[in-house]
Design a protein around this nucleic acid. Structure first.
Lengths: 256, 256
DNA sequence: CCAATCCGCTGACATTTGTCATCGCGGTGG
DNA sequence: CCACCGCGATGACAAATGTCAGCGGATTGG
């Protein structure tokens, strides 16, 4: 895999601490701008950013393009810049389970495969998406020089673990309606986390994808959405939905 | 939380590489013996082990005792020495979802809460269990001195991520029978991984706990076990089961 | 020895979820 | 403009799963 080189705005020598990049608006090809958007990487020192810059490359994917495929040699780690990526596992019976949506810039993709020879999942862009990728073979070198990097990775992995645990609890103990309500609330949170204003939450997944994420069939998903609508919790719109009453939604997501 | 100090067998100066501890049989209070059993820690250098030793403490728990409780201040990281621990999350509706069983010596417990103020789950001993715990506040110091430590932690976290992803796929896309079959196969694998010989796999969870793990009710779990028995895949025994035909089990775990 | 308890197990029935076939809308390309 | 296709949506029915009440064996403690 190969891509476009990234660069960092030159900053007066001696300025070693992290800080917002001077570009206004942000430049998609400037590593500092990219990392400033990220929860994890924004606090990296300039040196660490420079070290990353040396090995990071930039690449674009269109809808339905695969970042990587389950079973292929696992060579790279990905950092989301913009767009959305779904990561899923295929089962012997042909079904798919989406276990992760990367939507927030800075989200790390494939960190679970860091120590595996082959990717354990498939990652697919669900809209036009920009990422940078970091060949894994360079990581030991980067890590040995910059202790902030493993710390950053560990923070990201720990956050992922918590996300998965919540997902497991939802899948294991909630019925379809509760799961759908939980997902909509989750979407609402990330929406705010990204500082988006609009009342309407745009849904980027198809009904079938959403069903594959929350572990039900499309039929059941739609039944649950209708139920939420009839309970006045949400309104379905053209390509998304609006939350009418967050309390009702929370009540329905908990189940009794 | 406080416990008993661990120690390391003195080894001639200059011997800096990792190696099996000379104790035969292994000594439960000797850190080297403990770590030798672990996939992750066994390769640590002697210096790193010594650094850990300084902060690790040993503690025992009886069945049903809690290592920590969801919502309490998250101060420690745990390493399993012997016994078994279940880690679960409680939901608003009163149900529990077990997301992790620590059964193999060296298993890390609570690493998902490393960067959180409070534990996000509850950990409970399901039999007499020995662990050591490491106060999190000492980690930055240990990490800055020994780069192998974050690497070890990351390996463990990556493995956990993969385990969770598989669990999510099972919960989301398999029916009860397939999940039960998958779990039994998983148990069979860990059994071998621990070099246990007996044909009979001892089940340490109650039916209800097992149900809480695979996300079904106890009623459904038993239905599925009976089905597996009637298909000649397994035989239920006094306190465990025997796999009669691994192929049948694999076939049933895949679903078509 | 008995009572109390925990746990595995079962039947009967209600509810949820999946399956399958089908319809219709909206976009897209010839 | 029309044919095609992907996607959302629906009804009817089948299958899986949950709920609840209850039985009985094993263990524990008096």
């Amino acid at each position: 895999m190969s891509g476009v080189k990234l660069w960092i705005q030159e900053i007066p020598a001696g300025d070693n601490v992290a800080g917002p990049c001077p570009h206004k608006p942000a430049d998609d090809r400037c590593l500092s701008c990219i990392l400033d958007d990220s929860d994890y990487f924004s606090t990296l020192s300039l040196q660490a950013k420079r070290a990353l810059q040396e090995f990071l490359e930039f690449k674009s994917f269109n809808r339905h393009a695969l970042l990587y495929r389950e079973g292929r040699a696992s060579d790279d780690l990905f950092i989301l810049i913009s767009g959305q990526v779904k990561v899923y596992k295929s089962l012997p019976n042909g079904r798919q389970q989406i276990h992760k949506l990367a939507v927030i810039p800075g989200d790390l993709i494939a960190c679970e495969d860091l120590y595996l020879d082959r990717y354990s999942s498939t990652a697919e862009a669900i809209c036009t998406t920009n990422v940078c990728f970091l060949p894994k073979r360079h990581l030991p070198q980067i890590i040995s020089r910059h202790q902030e990097i493993p710390d950053t990775l560990m923070r990201s992995m720990a956050r992922n673990l918590n996300f998965y645990i919540r997902h497991i609890a939802n899948l294991g103990q909630k019925n379809a309606l509760e799961r759908v309500a939980s997902y909509l609330l989750f979407l609402h949170e990330t929406h705010h986390e990204r500082n988006l204003r609009s009342e309407e939450l745009r849904e980027s997944l198809t009904r079938t994808e959403l069903a594959d994420m929350i572990g039900v069939t499309q039929r059941t998903l739609i039944r649950s959405l209708k139920k939420l609508e009839s309970e006045q919790a949400i309104v379905l719109t053209r390509d998304g939905f609006v939350i009418l009453d967050k309390n009702i939604l929370e009540y329905l997501s908990a189940g009794d």
